[in-house]
Amino acid sequence: MTEMEQQKSAEITQDSKNLALLLWIGTLFFGFIPGLIFYLVKADDAYIKAQSMEALNWSITAILAYLAAFMLSFIVIGVFLIPVIGICHLIFCIMGAVAASKGNPFRVPFTLRLIK
């Protein structure tokens, strides 16, 4: 670990890491609700706010993708897309939880950045 990473990790408290971990696990099971709650309640903690914003953006993107796949399921393409979106949701939430437990910032690729 480089000196810069150690300083960055030292600034983030263990409590913030634990809350961010719970945020990503909650996002896996409850969608946008944990991200919205943490975004509104923990606005004083920069790390939690950044991670909740990312989780909320990912949840909104996943919901829009599920809606598009549902509409496309009438022409059979969506039937194949729904499991792919579910696997992406699982993988990105796990990646977010692992990064949060280490105190690293995590940005989900392919996410619409609607909340800034």
Results as ranks from 00 to 15, higher is better:
residue 72 L to G: 09
residue 49 K to M: 09
residue 42 K to D: 02
residue 113 R to A: 08
residue 92 F to D: 06
residue 42 K to N: 10
residue 17 K to C: 04
residue 51 Q to D: 01
residue 69 A to M: 10
residue 17 K to Y: 01
residue 67 L to P: 12
residue 84 V to S: 08
residue 70 F to Q: 08
residue 78 G to A: 04
residue 109 P to D: 09
residue 59 S to N: 09
residue 81 L to W: 09
residue 17 K to S: 03
residue 9 S to L: 10
residue 62 A to P: 05
residue 23 L to P: 04
residue 61 T to Y: 01
residue 44 D to Y: 10
residue 25 I to A: 09
residue 81 L to H: 11
residue 54 E to V: 03
residue 19 L to C: 05
residue 108 V to C: 08
residue 73 S to C: 04
residue 91 I to A: 13
residue 108 V to H: 08
residue 89 H to Y: 05
residue 15 D to M: 05
residue 34 P to S: 07
residue 48 I to F: 03
residue 67 L to I: 15
residue 40 L to K: 15
residue 16 S to V: 02
residue 25 I to E: 01
residue 114 L to I: 13
residue 29 F to H: 10
residue 10 A to D: 12
residue 98 V to M: 13
residue 43 A to F: 15
residue 93 C to W: 02
residue 97 A to S: 00
residue 35 G to R: 05
residue 102 K to V: 03
residue 87 I to F: 09
residue 67 L to M: 13
residue 82 I to F: 09
residue 94 I to T: 08
residue 104 N to V: 05
residue 46 A to K: 14
residue 87 I to W: 14
residue 39 Y to L: 02
residue 100 A to S: 10
residue 2 T to G: 13
residue 29 F to W: 07
residue 16 S to E: 01
residue 79 V to L: 15
residue 45 D to T: 04
residue 43 A to R: 15
residue 56 L to M: 11
residue 65 A to D: 07
residue 57 N to Y: 03
residue 112 L to M: 13
residue 92 F to S: 08
residue 107 R to K: 15
residue 66 Y to V: 03
residue 67 L to D: 06
residue 5 E to F: 06
residue 107 R to H: 14
residue 5 E to D: 09
residue 83 P to V: 02
residue 54 E to H: 05
residue 106 F to N: 07
residue 75 I to E: 10
residue 71 M to W: 15
residue 44 D to V: 09
residue 114 L to G: 13
residue 47 Y to P: 07
residue 106 F to M: 07
residue 115 I to R: 10
residue 13 T to K: 04
residue 29 F to Q: 04
residue 11 E to Q: 14
residue 52 S to F: 05
residue 42 K to P: 05
residue 64 L to W: 15
residue 81 L to Y: 07
residue 26 G to R: 02
residue 79 V to I: 14
residue 12 I to W: 00
residue 109 P to S: 07
residue 60 I to D: 01
residue 76 V to S: 14
residue 101 S to E: 00
residue 64 L to R: 14
residue 112 L to S: 13
residue 36 L to G: 06
residue 69 A to T: 11
residue 93 C to I: 04
residue 115 I to K: 06
residue 64 L to Y: 11
residue 23 L to E: 02
residue 98 V to Q: 13
residue 100 A to C: 03
residue 35 G to S: 12
residue 19 L to R: 14
residue 50 A to G: 10
residue 84 V to R: 13
residue 4 M to G: 02
residue 6 Q to V: 01
residue 85 I to H: 07
residue 101 S to W: 06
residue 115 I to P: 02
residue 57 N to D: 05
residue 60 I to F: 10
residue 20 A to Q: 03
residue 26 G to S: 00
residue 31 G to L: 00
residue 10 A to V: 08
residue 62 A to R: 12
residue 28 L to M: 05
residue 110 F to M: 15
residue 95 M to N: 13
residue 114 L to W: 08
residue 97 A to Q: 00
residue 2 T to D: 10
residue 50 A to N: 12
residue 110 F to Q: 08
residue 77 I to T: 12
residue 59 S to D: 05
residue 52 S to Q: 03
residue 3 E to V: 07
residue 102 K to D: 00
residue 78 G to R: 04
residue 76 V to Q: 11
residue 49 K to R: 15
residue 25 I to W: 04
residue 19 L to P: 07
residue 49 K to S: 14
residue 14 Q to T: 11
